[in-house]
Design a protein around this nucleic acid. Structure first.
Length: 214
DNA sequence: GCGACAG
DNA sequence: ATCTTGTCGC
């Protein structure tokens, strides 16, 4: 399915106005075996001011969830993400997800798949590498190095969003150039390692603030 | 066969 | 991903 969907992907930049960016994330409880609750959250932020405009949350107690399998995260999280996204009332120009986009074994990471379904520009911002050859990136905020596939083509970027802090992996989703994606992610990290809208989505998706109870 | 492996 | 606990740097 991922290989087939790749034909519909637009790597060209077709984004002009990015006044409203929505960060998305999903949390599970418990995390490992027999998941009882899943919560997806979306946080719309005004860009580049980074002011929160709206938050939408969707919670469910699914009988069964698609397992986490590296390379197939889309099938596990997209169903929940769509539920939270459809609750949004405010307009969104671009979606940012916590995961890879083009930097994926088949070029079909979560961000790309979601963009195809929504027909909206998307960007993938991940905390760890999934695929691609990487090189060191300078310690200064704003520094970039690139992720390449086996052919040597660039499929993503390793971006330092804070001085001396572990970099984030940025890659194209749908309809956004890598250059633009890197620029947007960097402008969304004024004080923390991760983009503000993703941090907000992550926080709102938390089911038990770090405790085993409730 | 072995190592890697988003969340 | 989630949970726990401790340490290091600005």
């Amino acid at each position: 399915m991922q290989k087939a969907l790749l034909d519909d992907v637009c790597w060209r930049n077709r984004v002009r106005k990015t006044k409203y960016i929505c960060g998305c994330d999903v949390s599970y409880w418990p995390a490992m075996k027999s998941i009882k609750k899943v919560r997806a959250a979306c946080a719309v932020y005004k860009y580049p001011e980074l002011e929160e405009i709206e938050v939408a949350i969707y919670t469910e107690s699914p009988k069964k969830t698609f397992p986490y399998v590296p390379g197939y995260l889309s099938f596990r999280e997209i169903p929940f993400l769509l539920k939270a996204i459809e609750k949004l009332k405010s307009p969104v120009d671009l979606f940012m997800v916590d995961g890879q986009g083009r930097a994926h074994p088949r070029g079909m990471g979560l961000a790309v798949h979601l963009g195809l379904l929504l027909k909206k520009p998307t960007i993938g911002s991940a905390k760890k590498r999934l695929y691609g050859a990487e090189t060191e990136v300078a310690a200064k905020k704003g520094s970039v190095s690139y992720l390449r596939d086996k052919k040597g083509d660039i499929i993503g970027a390793k971006l330092r969003t804070r001085d001396n802090v572990k970099p984030v992996y940025v890659s194209q989703g749908w309809g956004v150039s890598l250059e633009r994606a890197v620029e947007i992610v960097l402008n969304s990290c004024p004080k923390y390692r991760l983009p503000e809208m993703i941090r907000a989505a992550h926080n709102n998706a938390q089911i038990n603030g770090g405790k085993i109870n409730s």
